[in-house]
Protein backbone atom coordinates (compact mmCIF):
# COMPACT_ATOMS: atom_id res chain seq x y z
CA UNK A 1 0.00 0.00 0.00
CA UNK A 2 2.70 2.48 1.07
CA UNK A 3 4.76 1.24 -1.85
CA UNK A 4 2.02 2.26 -4.31
CA UNK A 5 1.66 5.63 -2.58
CA UNK A 6 5.35 6.47 -2.96
CA UNK A 7 5.26 5.26 -6.57
CA UNK A 8 2.32 7.53 -7.26
CA UNK A 9 4.04 10.52 -5.70
CA UNK A 10 7.12 9.81 -7.79
CA UNK A 11 5.08 9.73 -11.01
CA UNK A 12 3.33 12.94 -9.98
CA UNK A 13 6.65 14.73 -9.36
CA UNK A 14 7.92 13.61 -12.77
CA UNK A 15 4.75 14.90 -14.40
CA UNK A 16 5.03 18.28 -12.66
CA UNK A 17 8.67 18.47 -13.77
CA UNK A 18 7.63 17.75 -17.37
CA UNK A 19 5.06 20.53 -17.25
CA UNK A 20 7.52 23.09 -15.91
CA UNK A 21 10.15 22.16 -18.53
CA UNK A 22 10.31 22.77 -22.29
CA UNK A 23 8.55 20.62 -24.86
CA UNK A 24 8.05 20.52 -28.62
CA UNK A 25 4.54 20.98 -30.04
CA UNK A 26 2.73 20.22 -26.81
CA UNK A 27 4.52 16.89 -26.36
CA UNK A 28 5.24 17.85 -22.74
CA UNK A 29 1.49 17.79 -22.05
CA UNK A 30 1.22 14.33 -23.59
CA UNK A 31 4.08 13.02 -21.48
CA UNK A 32 2.73 14.71 -18.36
CA UNK A 33 -0.74 13.26 -19.02
CA UNK A 34 0.74 9.79 -19.29
CA UNK A 35 2.58 10.23 -15.98
CA UNK A 36 -0.45 11.73 -14.20
CA UNK A 37 -2.52 8.73 -15.35
CA UNK A 38 0.04 6.33 -13.88
CA UNK A 39 0.19 8.35 -10.66
CA UNK A 40 -3.60 8.35 -10.30
CA UNK A 41 -3.72 4.57 -10.79
CA UNK A 42 -1.08 4.12 -8.08
CA UNK A 43 -3.05 6.35 -5.69
CA UNK A 44 -6.17 4.30 -6.40
CA UNK A 45 -4.31 1.09 -5.59
CA UNK A 46 -3.09 2.71 -2.38
CA UNK A 47 -6.73 3.64 -1.61
CA UNK A 48 -5.69 7.28 -1.34
CA UNK A 49 -8.89 8.52 -2.97
CA UNK A 50 -8.43 12.27 -2.47
CA UNK A 51 -4.98 12.21 -4.05
CA UNK A 52 -6.26 10.07 -6.91
CA UNK A 53 -9.07 12.57 -7.54
CA UNK A 54 -6.72 15.55 -7.49
CA UNK A 55 -4.33 13.79 -9.88
CA UNK A 56 -7.16 12.98 -12.31
CA UNK A 57 -8.08 16.67 -12.30
CA UNK A 58 -4.49 17.55 -13.26
CA UNK A 59 -4.72 14.90 -15.99
CA UNK A 60 -7.93 16.55 -17.23
CA UNK A 61 -6.25 19.95 -17.48
CA UNK A 62 -3.42 18.37 -19.53
CA UNK A 63 -5.98 16.88 -21.93
CA UNK A 64 -7.70 20.25 -22.23
CA UNK A 65 -4.36 21.85 -23.16
CA UNK A 66 -4.08 19.19 -25.88
CA UNK A 67 -7.63 20.02 -27.08
CA UNK A 68 -8.78 16.46 -26.26
CA UNK A 69 -12.12 17.24 -24.68
CA UNK A 70 -13.34 13.65 -24.65
CA UNK A 71 -10.30 12.47 -22.66
CA UNK A 72 -10.60 15.49 -20.36
CA UNK A 73 -14.24 14.66 -19.67
CA UNK A 74 -13.34 11.04 -18.96
CA UNK A 75 -10.61 12.18 -16.56
CA UNK A 76 -13.18 14.31 -14.72
CA UNK A 77 -15.42 11.25 -14.45
CA UNK A 78 -12.52 9.22 -13.03
CA UNK A 79 -11.82 12.02 -10.55
CA UNK A 80 -15.49 12.01 -9.53
CA UNK A 81 -15.44 8.25 -8.97
CA UNK A 82 -12.36 8.63 -6.77
CA UNK A 83 -13.86 11.49 -4.76
CA UNK A 84 -17.13 9.57 -4.38
CA UNK A 85 -15.51 7.55 -1.60
CA UNK A 86 -14.60 10.60 0.49
CA UNK A 87 -16.12 13.87 -0.71
CA UNK A 88 -19.53 13.85 -2.38
CA UNK A 89 -19.55 17.60 -3.15
CA UNK A 90 -16.23 17.37 -4.96
CA UNK A 91 -17.49 14.31 -6.83
CA UNK A 92 -20.59 16.20 -7.98
CA UNK A 93 -18.46 19.16 -9.08
CA UNK A 94 -16.23 16.88 -11.20
CA UNK A 95 -19.21 15.16 -12.81
CA UNK A 96 -20.73 18.55 -13.56
CA UNK A 97 -17.56 19.58 -15.41
CA UNK A 98 -17.58 16.26 -17.28
CA UNK A 99 -21.19 16.87 -18.33
CA UNK A 100 -20.30 20.33 -19.69
CA UNK A 101 -17.42 18.87 -21.70
CA UNK A 102 -19.58 16.05 -23.10
CA UNK A 103 -22.17 18.64 -24.13
CA UNK A 104 -19.45 20.65 -25.91
CA UNK A 105 -18.46 17.67 -28.04
CA UNK A 106 -22.06 16.61 -28.66
CA UNK A 107 -22.00 13.40 -26.61
CA UNK A 108 -25.43 14.04 -25.11
CA UNK A 109 -26.13 10.43 -24.14
CA UNK A 110 -22.96 10.41 -22.02
CA UNK A 111 -23.96 13.76 -20.51
CA UNK A 112 -27.39 12.33 -19.65
CA UNK A 113 -25.81 9.30 -18.01
CA UNK A 114 -23.59 11.42 -15.76
CA UNK A 115 -26.41 13.83 -14.91
CA UNK A 116 -28.30 10.79 -13.69
CA UNK A 117 -25.26 9.78 -11.66
CA UNK A 118 -25.16 13.24 -10.02
CA UNK A 119 -28.85 12.87 -9.18
CA UNK A 120 -28.17 9.46 -7.62
CA UNK A 121 -25.38 10.95 -5.50
CA UNK A 122 -27.71 13.65 -4.20
CA UNK A 123 -30.41 11.04 -3.60
CA UNK A 124 -27.94 9.02 -1.54
CA UNK A 125 -27.22 12.14 0.50
CA UNK A 126 -30.98 12.66 1.03
CA UNK A 127 -30.77 16.01 -0.80
CA UNK A 128 -34.10 15.57 -2.55
CA UNK A 129 -34.34 19.08 -4.02
CA UNK A 130 -31.04 18.78 -5.89
CA UNK A 131 -31.74 15.16 -6.86
CA UNK A 132 -35.00 16.30 -8.43
CA UNK A 133 -33.25 19.06 -10.42
CA UNK A 134 -30.64 16.69 -11.84
CA UNK A 135 -33.07 13.84 -12.57
CA UNK A 136 -35.13 16.38 -14.49
CA UNK A 137 -32.11 17.50 -16.53
CA UNK A 138 -31.15 13.88 -17.15
CA UNK A 139 -34.67 13.00 -18.31
CA UNK A 140 -34.57 15.95 -20.70
CA UNK A 141 -31.25 14.82 -22.21
CA UNK A 142 -32.38 11.21 -22.53
CA UNK A 143 -35.59 12.38 -24.21
CA UNK A 144 -33.57 14.42 -26.73
CA UNK A 145 -31.53 11.32 -27.54
CA UNK A 146 -34.74 9.26 -27.80
CA UNK A 147 -33.70 6.88 -25.04
CA UNK A 148 -37.29 6.73 -23.82
CA UNK A 149 -36.98 4.03 -21.15
CA UNK A 150 -34.14 5.81 -19.37
CA UNK A 151 -36.02 9.10 -19.75
CA UNK A 152 -39.11 7.53 -18.17
CA UNK A 153 -37.07 6.11 -15.28
CA UNK A 154 -35.72 9.58 -14.54
CA UNK A 155 -39.17 11.14 -14.91
CA UNK A 156 -40.58 8.66 -12.41
CA UNK A 157 -37.90 9.69 -9.95
CA UNK A 158 -38.80 13.34 -10.54
CA UNK A 159 -42.47 12.56 -9.89
CA UNK A 160 -41.59 10.62 -6.75
CA UNK A 161 -39.50 13.44 -5.30
CA UNK A 162 -41.94 16.12 -6.42
CA UNK A 163 -44.69 14.37 -4.45
CA UNK A 164 -42.42 14.12 -1.41
CA UNK A 165 -41.83 17.87 -1.68
CA UNK A 166 -45.61 18.38 -1.94
CA UNK A 167 -45.47 19.46 -5.59
CA UNK A 168 -48.39 17.17 -6.32
CA UNK A 169 -49.54 18.71 -9.61
CA UNK A 170 -46.12 18.24 -11.17
CA UNK A 171 -46.07 14.63 -10.02
CA UNK A 172 -49.57 13.96 -11.37
CA UNK A 173 -48.69 15.37 -14.79
CA UNK A 174 -45.59 13.19 -15.06
CA UNK A 175 -47.35 9.97 -14.04
CA UNK A 176 -50.25 10.65 -16.41
CA UNK A 177 -47.88 11.39 -19.27
CA UNK A 178 -45.94 8.16 -18.67
CA UNK A 179 -49.21 6.21 -18.51
CA UNK A 180 -50.34 7.77 -21.80
CA UNK A 181 -47.06 6.82 -23.48
CA UNK A 182 -47.11 3.30 -22.06
CA UNK A 183 -50.59 2.57 -23.40
CA UNK A 184 -49.25 2.58 -26.96
CA UNK A 185 -46.69 -0.12 -26.24
CA UNK A 186 -47.45 -3.82 -25.83
CA UNK A 187 -44.65 -4.24 -23.30
CA UNK A 188 -45.30 -1.18 -21.17
CA UNK A 189 -49.12 -1.24 -21.13
CA UNK A 190 -49.15 -3.59 -18.12
CA UNK A 191 -47.56 -0.91 -15.96
CA UNK A 192 -50.22 1.69 -16.77
CA UNK A 193 -52.43 0.96 -13.78
CA UNK A 194 -49.43 1.37 -11.47
CA UNK A 195 -48.73 4.82 -12.91
CA UNK A 196 -52.39 5.80 -12.68
CA UNK A 197 -52.50 4.59 -9.07
CA UNK A 198 -49.52 6.82 -8.25
CA UNK A 199 -51.18 9.77 -9.98
CA UNK A 200 -54.40 9.03 -8.09
CA UNK A 201 -52.62 8.97 -4.73
CA UNK A 202 -51.09 12.37 -5.55
CA UNK A 203 -54.60 13.62 -6.41
CA UNK A 204 -55.76 12.41 -2.99
CA UNK A 205 -52.94 14.35 -1.34
CA UNK A 206 -54.28 17.55 -2.89
CA UNK A 207 -57.39 16.95 -0.81
CA UNK A 208 -59.96 17.81 -3.48
CA UNK A 209 -62.49 14.96 -3.71
CA UNK A 210 -64.13 16.37 -6.86
CA UNK A 211 -60.74 16.53 -8.57
CA UNK A 212 -60.12 12.90 -7.59
CA UNK A 213 -63.47 11.81 -9.03
CA UNK A 214 -62.81 13.72 -12.25
CA UNK A 215 -59.34 12.21 -12.47
CA UNK A 216 -60.76 8.69 -12.09
CA UNK A 217 -63.20 9.36 -14.92
CA UNK A 218 -60.35 10.68 -17.04
CA UNK A 219 -58.24 7.60 -16.30
CA UNK A 220 -61.15 5.41 -17.32
CA UNK A 221 -61.29 7.18 -20.68
CA UNK A 222 -57.53 6.87 -21.00
CA UNK A 223 -57.54 3.13 -20.24
CA UNK A 224 -60.95 1.45 -20.44
CA UNK A 225 -59.66 -1.58 -18.51
CA UNK A 226 -58.69 0.55 -15.51
CA UNK A 227 -62.18 0.63 -13.99
CA UNK A 228 -62.07 -3.14 -13.47
CA UNK A 229 -58.85 -3.08 -11.46
CA UNK A 230 -58.20 -3.23 -7.72
CA UNK A 231 -56.28 0.03 -8.06
CA UNK A 232 -59.37 1.83 -9.35
CA UNK A 233 -61.54 0.38 -6.57
CA UNK A 234 -58.91 1.38 -4.01
CA UNK A 235 -58.83 5.00 -5.20
CA UNK A 236 -62.62 5.18 -5.48
CA UNK A 237 -63.11 3.75 -1.98
CA UNK A 238 -60.56 6.14 -0.48
CA UNK A 239 -62.22 9.06 -2.23
CA UNK A 240 -65.54 7.93 -0.73
CA UNK A 241 -63.97 7.66 2.73
CA UNK A 242 -62.56 11.19 2.42
CA UNK A 243 -65.90 12.48 1.20
CA UNK A 244 -67.63 10.90 4.21
CA UNK A 245 -64.76 12.04 6.47
CA UNK A 246 -64.57 8.50 7.83
CA UNK A 247 -61.08 7.70 9.13
CA UNK A 248 -62.02 4.14 10.10
CA UNK A 249 -63.25 3.38 6.58
CA UNK A 250 -60.09 4.93 5.13
CA UNK A 251 -57.95 2.68 7.34
CA UNK A 252 -59.93 -0.43 6.39
CA UNK A 253 -59.62 0.31 2.66
CA UNK A 254 -55.86 0.82 2.93
CA UNK A 255 -55.41 -2.30 5.05
CA UNK A 256 -57.41 -4.40 2.62
CA UNK A 257 -55.39 -3.19 -0.37
CA UNK A 258 -52.11 -3.67 1.50
CA UNK A 259 -53.05 -7.22 2.46
CA UNK A 260 -53.02 -8.11 -1.24
CA UNK A 261 -50.19 -5.93 -2.56
CA UNK A 262 -47.98 -4.44 0.17
CA UNK A 263 -47.65 -0.68 -0.18
CA UNK A 264 -44.14 0.68 -0.66
CA UNK A 265 -42.72 3.41 1.58
CA UNK A 266 -43.55 6.22 -0.88
CA UNK A 267 -47.24 5.28 -1.06
CA UNK A 268 -47.34 4.78 2.71
CA UNK A 269 -45.91 8.26 3.31
CA UNK A 270 -48.42 9.93 1.00
CA UNK A 271 -51.39 7.97 2.33
CA UNK A 272 -50.38 8.87 5.88
CA UNK A 273 -50.44 12.53 4.83
CA UNK A 274 -53.95 12.02 3.48
CA UNK A 275 -54.97 10.33 6.72
CA UNK A 276 -53.52 13.12 8.85
CA UNK A 277 -55.50 15.69 6.84
CA UNK A 278 -58.62 13.59 7.24
CA UNK A 279 -58.09 13.31 11.00
CA UNK A 280 -57.55 17.06 11.26
CA UNK A 281 -60.79 17.64 9.36
CA UNK A 282 -62.63 15.26 11.66
CA UNK A 283 -61.30 17.06 14.74
CA UNK A 284 -62.32 20.39 13.23
CA UNK A 285 -65.85 19.08 12.73
CA UNK A 286 -65.92 17.84 16.34
CA UNK A 287 -64.78 21.25 17.60
CA UNK A 288 -67.52 22.98 15.65
CA UNK A 289 -70.18 20.69 17.09
Amino acid sequence: MADQLSKGEEFEKKAEKKLSGWGLFGSKYEDAADLFDKAANCFKLAKSWDKAGATYLKLASCHLKLESKHEAAQAHVDAAHSYKKTNINESVSCLDQAVNLFCDIGRLSMAARYLKEIAELYEGEQNIEQALVYYEKSADFFQNEEVTTSANQCKQKVAQFAAQLEQYQKSIEIYEEIARQSLNNNLLKYGVKGHLLNAGICQLCKGDVIAVTNALERYQELDPTFSGTREYRFLADIAAAIDEEDVAKFTDVVKEFDSMTPLDSWKTTLLLRVKEKLKAKELEEDDLT
Binding site: P224, F226, S227
Partner: peptide, 26 residues
Protein backbone atom coordinates in the same frame (compact mmCIF):
# COMPACT_ATOMS: atom_id res chain seq x y z
CA UNK B 1 -44.78 -3.72 -29.79
CA UNK B 2 -44.62 -0.46 -31.66
CA UNK B 3 -48.02 -0.79 -33.28
CA UNK B 4 -50.08 2.22 -32.28
CA UNK B 5 -53.85 2.35 -32.38
CA UNK B 6 -57.02 2.61 -30.36
CA UNK B 7 -57.18 -1.14 -29.73
CA UNK B 8 -58.58 -0.70 -26.21
CA UNK B 9 -61.36 1.63 -27.36
CA UNK B 10 -62.31 -0.83 -30.09
CA UNK B 11 -62.45 -3.64 -27.53
CA UNK B 12 -64.63 -1.50 -25.30
CA UNK B 13 -67.05 -0.77 -28.14
CA UNK B 14 -67.24 -4.50 -28.79
CA UNK B 15 -68.05 -4.97 -25.11
CA UNK B 16 -64.95 -7.05 -24.44
CA UNK B 17 -63.44 -5.07 -21.57
CA UNK B 18 -63.74 -6.16 -17.97
CA UNK B 19 -64.86 -2.73 -16.80
CA UNK B 20 -68.41 -3.55 -15.67
CA UNK B 21 -67.29 -6.56 -13.68
CA UNK B 22 -65.14 -4.41 -11.44
CA UNK B 23 -68.07 -2.24 -10.51
CA UNK B 24 -69.98 -5.15 -9.05
CA UNK B 25 -67.42 -5.42 -6.30
CA UNK B 26 -68.30 -2.00 -4.97
Amino acid sequence: VRRKGNHLEQREKLGLTSAPKGQSKL
